Every structure is written in structure tokens, then in C-alpha cells.
Amino acid sequence: NQASVVANQLIPINTALTLVMMRSEVVTPVGIPAEDIPRLVSMQVSRAVPLGTTLMPDMVKGYA
């Protein structure tokens, strides 16, 4: 089972991601792979992401 990136806190719209905002977790459906966490740092979210939400490619500007 592949771990995905999950929000560790509420991430407001247009916030630049930092390591403390993200954790890896095995979830369904699968989201952005956990190994991409270093690449996500400083990228902005395109919408508010609630705590515990799996990050999907369309939620991060410039990821897809």
C-alpha cells in the first residue's frame, strides 16, 4: 500500500506548503504520493485543505 500526502492541519487557500503541514498516511483513495513531499514544499494550495484531507494533484498549484 502506498502512502499519500495528508494535511496535518487546516491549510488556507493560497498557502505555501511547509513540511509541518503534511504527513504521510495510507489512505483511500490514493492522493499525491508521500515521496513527493519534498517537491511540494513552497508550492501553494489552490483551495482550503481541511485537517486530515488527502492532497490530490489538482489541489496544489503547479504540481500536476
Rank of each mutant, 00 (worst) to 15 (best):
L17D: 02
I13C: 05
Y63A: 04
A16C: 08
G31T: 02
Q9N: 10
Q2L: 15
S24F: 11
R23L: 06
P50N: 14
P33I: 15
P29T: 07
I11K: 00
E35Q: 11
P33E: 04
E25V: 06
V45S: 12
K61W: 05
M21V: 03
S24T: 11
V26W: 08
S24V: 11
L51D: 15
M21C: 03
G31R: 02
A48G: 07
M56E: 10
S4M: 02
D58N: 14
I11D: 00
G31H: 01
I13Y: 06
V41P: 01
N14K: 07
P12Y: 05
P57N: 06
E25A: 15
V6I: 15
A48L: 15
N8V: 12
G52F: 05
Y63I: 05
Y63C: 05
V5A: 11
Q2G: 15
P29L: 07
P57Y: 06
Q44G: 04
G52M: 04
S24G: 09
P50H: 14
M21G: 03
V20K: 12
E35N: 09
Q44Y: 11
R23P: 02
I32P: 00
G52V: 02
R23M: 07
V26Q: 14
P33T: 12
M43G: 03
S4N: 01
V41C: 05
G31D: 01
V6K: 04
P33Y: 12
G62T: 04
T28V: 10
L55A: 01
E35M: 08
L17R: 00
T15Y: 07
N1K: 04
P57K: 05
V5K: 00
L17F: 02
M22Y: 01
G62E: 10
I11Y: 00
T28Y: 13
V30A: 09
I11P: 00
V30Q: 07
V30K: 05
T53P: 01
S46N: 13
S46P: 03
I37S: 05
S42M: 08
Q9S: 08
I11H: 01
P57R: 09
A34L: 04
A3P: 06
L51Y: 13
L19R: 11
A7N: 01
N8D: 14
R39F: 12
M56T: 13
G31L: 02
S42V: 03
L51K: 15
M21P: 02
E35L: 10
L10Y: 08
A34R: 04
G31V: 01
N1C: 06
P33S: 13
R47L: 10
V20P: 12
L55E: 02
V27D: 02
S4P: 00
V6A: 03
L51E: 13
P57V: 05
M56Y: 12
L55V: 12
M43N: 06
T54K: 05
T53H: 13
Q44P: 11
P38D: 07
P38L: 10
I13T: 09
L55T: 01
T28Q: 09
T53Q: 14
V30H: 09
A16V: 09
V45K: 00
L10F: 09
V45M: 10
R39P: 00
T54I: 10
P50A: 14
T28P: 02
V27W: 03
V30P: 12
V49W: 02
L10P: 13
T54W: 01
A34T: 13
L10K: 08
V49P: 02
I11G: 01
E35T: 11
G62Q: 12
V30E: 15
I11N: 01
V60C: 02
S42T: 10
S42R: 06
G62C: 11
I11M: 04
E35I: 09
S24P: 11
R47C: 04
P38Y: 07
A64W: 03
I32F: 03
P38H: 11
S46Q: 14
S46M: 12
L55Q: 01
S42F: 10
L19A: 10
V41N: 04
R39D: 04
V41R: 05
S24A: 13
P29K: 04
R47M: 13
G52Q: 05
G31W: 02
E35F: 08
I37M: 12
P12K: 07
I37D: 00
L17V: 03
L40R: 00
V30Y: 13
V41A: 07
I11W: 00
P50W: 05
T54C: 03
V5G: 00
R23T: 13
P12D: 13
A34C: 08
G31A: 03
M56S: 08
V6R: 04
P57F: 06
P29V: 08
I37E: 03
P33W: 12
P50M: 14
R39T: 08
R39E: 08
I13W: 08
L40G: 00
L51I: 15
Q9I: 15
N8L: 05
A48V: 13
P29Y: 04
N14Q: 10
A3I: 09
I11C: 03
L51P: 12
N8S: 15
I37T: 08
I13V: 10
L19K: 12
E25K: 04
V30I: 15
I13A: 11
D36P: 01
P38A: 11
G52K: 04
A64Q: 14
D58Q: 11
S46V: 14
V60I: 12
P50C: 07
V41K: 04
D58M: 09
Y63E: 03
V20Y: 08
Q44M: 07
V30D: 15
Y63R: 03
A48P: 15
E25W: 04
D58A: 10
P57Q: 08
V5L: 03
